[in-house]
Amino acid sequence: MVKEGNNAKRLRQALEQRLPQIVVAPLFAASMFFVYGFIGWTAYISLTKSGVMPDYTLTGIGQYVRLWSTPRWYVAIGNLFIFSSLFIAIALAIGVLLAVLLDQRVRAEGVIRTIYLYPMALSFIVTGTVWKWMLNPGLGLERLVRQAGWENFRFDWLVNSDYAIYTVVIAAVWQSSGYAMALFLAGLRSVDDEVLRAAAIDGAGPWRTYTGIILPILRPVFLSTVIILAHLAIKSFDLVIALTGGGPGYATDVPATFMYSFAFQRSELGVAAASATMMLMTVVAIIVPYLYSELRKTGR
């Protein structure tokens, strides 16, 4: 009896000691399965000739060849390039400008900051819906300007295949530039007062202080903001769907909508998987070095 009691106690202690691992293990296993396992599945399917149904016989890189000979894919990549470079550049510029301005001991800073940042709380579908209404050529901005006296004003970007992608930039900048502002403002606030004092003693004016001293110190903040915005850009799907639906035609397709359309509307699993794998590789190329350096920095 006594021996059994001891055994039970020892078992409980051993269990207790292992409990942290026992708690983490299923969560870790789930994420291995649902992240890495699923990535593996998608990558595998991209190497088969799967069409409507998955087909598990490997056939090599045929789907990638097909993907890269689909004109629509080039439109999607071109759009992603135009969209992300403009979106990142403009959001970054607005973010820096607003952060520097807000850093000048502004009255009611809290209220202003709240106003700048609230679009981030909205769904991209909501943002898309609003801008779709404001940019529509019939009753929106175009008519507003015409009513103001410029009778011949034309602003039909939303329905113009050549310019529709720029309306996505307009809406995305509206939604996310406040986020860039918040990241920069946090960065500015973390600059040591000593640095500012030294600058003042050297007689540097406000312009020189910012361009010559403070902004260079904030280079890491620039880097992480660019990476966050790039990550947002590559994943953007909802905004395009809500604003233009990928149209006119497929003029505003991006890789995310391309993949969705091939997977769920055209049922070409192989091409869809190949395009998803291309997206993943792009994100990995950007995110992994960043995560690696961030984790090493914070480390232990």
Partner: peptide, 19 residues
Amino acid sequence: IFALMLFGAFIPFQVILLP
């Protein structure tokens, strides 16, 4: 384990939609 799990926050979800 943490680093491996963290990666899951950044993948484009298109890559897991089909499976």
